[in-house]
Each structure stands twice: as C-alpha cells, then as structure tokens.
C-alpha cells in the first residue's frame, strides 16, 4: 500500500522517478550483471586484446586484455561504491557541522562558516590532487582509500546547505514551541528539525555523491588511483594511455562515457525531483 502511494507520487514527480529509475538500472547492471560475467575478466590479461564488440565479447575488449562487459559491470559498481561511501561520509560530517553550527551559532558557527566559505573558493579537485599526490604511492590507492580521500572535501557543500536550512528553520514557530516546551538543543535537532529537513539531507547526499564521483573520475583520469582496478575513471586513463582514438577503438571510449553520463543524469534528476518535493511551489502548474 505504501509502495503504491510512493509509485503514485513518482508519477507526479517524473524527475525523481526518472532519476531513481536510472540509478536502479545502474545498480541492477552492476549486481545482476555479475551473473553473466566472470569478474576475473574485468582485469588485465584475461582475454584477447583489442576486440570490437561481438557475440563473445558484447562490449569488446581493451588493449590490456580486459573484457569490457565484465569491466563495465565491475567498474561501474566500484565507482558508485566509492562515490556513495565518500558521499555518505561527507553528508554525515556535513549534517553534524551544519546542524550544530546553524543551531547553536556563536563563535563555533563563525569559524565553520569561514572555513566552509574559504574551502568553497578553493577548487576541491585541486585540493584532492594535492592530498592524493602527497601520499606514498598515488597510483596504488585502494578504492576505499580513494573514498576516504574524496570525503575530505565531500562535507563542505552539505555543511553549507544544511546550515542555511537550519538557520531559516530555527525561526519557525514549531521550533520556537519546542524550545518553550523545554526540549534540549539535541532533541530539537533530532526530533523537530531532522524530519523536516529530510528532503534537503537527501539533496545534499545526491550532490555529495555525484561530486565525489566527479572527483574520483578526475583523479583517476590522471592516473591517480588503483591502476589495476577497472573503475570508470581508470578506464578513461587507459583509453588515453593507449590512445584508443588513433586506433579507432570507439567502443572503448563510448562505454565509460555512457556509464558516466548515466551516473550523473541519475543524481541530477534525483536532486531536481527532491527539490520539487521540498519546495512544491516550484511546480509549473497552478
């Protein structure tokens, strides 16, 4: 019954429905897809090299001897996992800082705001680059290490969004009432504000995940990350490394590009949909 109501809502909010649909497709591709592949073929020197798509290798193979179908299934999953882990950590830190600094204010808030503003001006990608290149061997970062590095910048935007929402919510009547009823700050944050800010938390999460994915792609395209793993960014790195253009290996270029486009489309549509959910005023119809 609840599910039916939810599906009904998605019909009225096509952006959210579409975004969740694309995300679901990607998740199915990386999970159910595993039933159709040999995960070992996602790694180098497991299959013949440079084969265009065929019945045997529906996505073709690359110059390192990876089956690209297996590579895409494993790699898309890996990139999504990296992004979601970093995004979740970023949202966690962002929510903690955003709620406390927005609600309690004072010197702490001033400091948080200042740091966030400064970090927003500094391109997060360059920051990531500096951090990653300082590590002992940037070309052997395990996926989870990559996620942790990405989470170093992933909290900035969520903190900003959540803080400003908390600031505006603090003045609302129901929060005032809770305060007058003697609820403690933490109780107000958890019981009164959190439920009302759920859509904003979800928007922040979608933004943080797609930001983290973008960061991982950028770093990996430069060869920073585990070169053994078939993540989407690494695929871009190898495409350039082996000059797939000159050799006309269009499939090798096209596949990660399509997957990347789908990932970003999913998260953008989801945040547009959530935004509509949070501010129904933006609806087009009267």
């Amino acid at each position: 019954m609840k599910l039916k109501g939810f599906l009904g809502y998605l019909r009225r909010n096509p952006a959210l429905g579409g975004g969740l649909g694309v995300l679901l497709f990607l998740l199915l591709f990386t999970t159910v897809g595993r039933l159709f592949i040999d995960p070992d073929h996602a790694y180098a020197m497991s299959v013949p090299i440079n084969r265009p798509p065929s019945a045997e290798y529906p996505f073709g193979t690359d110059s390192q001897g990876k089956d690209l179908f297996a590579g895409m299934v494993v790699g898309t999953g890996m990139t999504l996992t990296i992004g979601m882990t970093a995004g979740a950590i970023g949202l966690g830190i962002g929510a903690l800082l955003g709620f406390t600094s927005g609600y309690y204010g004072g010197v702490f808030d001033t400091i948080v705001k200042f740091i966030v503003d400064v970090l927003l001006t500094i391109p997060s990608f360059l920051l990531l680059l500096l951090i990653a290149t300082t590590l002992a061997d940037p070309s052997a970062l395990r996926p989870m290490q990559m996620a942790l590095i990405l989470s170093i910048v992933a909290w900035v935007a969520p903190t900003r969004t959540i803080r400003s929402q908390v600031l505006s919510m603090k003045e609302r009547a129901f929060v005032m009432m809770a305060k007058l009823n003697g609820m403690s700050g933490m109780e107000i944050i958890l019981k009164e504000m959190m439920p009302n800010l759920l859509p904003f938390l979800a928007i922040s999460l979608a933004g943080a995940v797609s930001g983290a994915v973008l960061g991982s792609l950028g770093l990996e395209a430069l060869g920073i990350g585990n070169r053994r793993e078939p993540t989407l960014g690494m695929m871009i790195f190898w495409v350039r490394y082996y000059a797939a253009f000159i050799r006309g290996m269009w499939w090798w270029i096209l596949e990660p590009v399509v997957a990347i486009a789908l990932v970003f489309t999913a998260f953008l549509l989801i945040s547009i949909g959530l935004d509509e959910m949070a501010n129904p005023r933006t609806r087009r119809k009267v």
Partner: peptide, 16 residues
C-alpha cells in the same frame, strides 16, 4: 542534458 556530463568526458568524445 549535456551539462550533466563532465566537460573533459565531452572533450574525450569530441577529440575522437
């Protein structure tokens, strides 16, 4: 729709 894709990925396709 194009703005969804990172410019360097678009660049990759255009270069090709």
């Amino acid at each position: 729709a194009l703005a969804v894709i990172p410019p360097f990925i678009i660049g990759l396709v255009l270069a090709d």
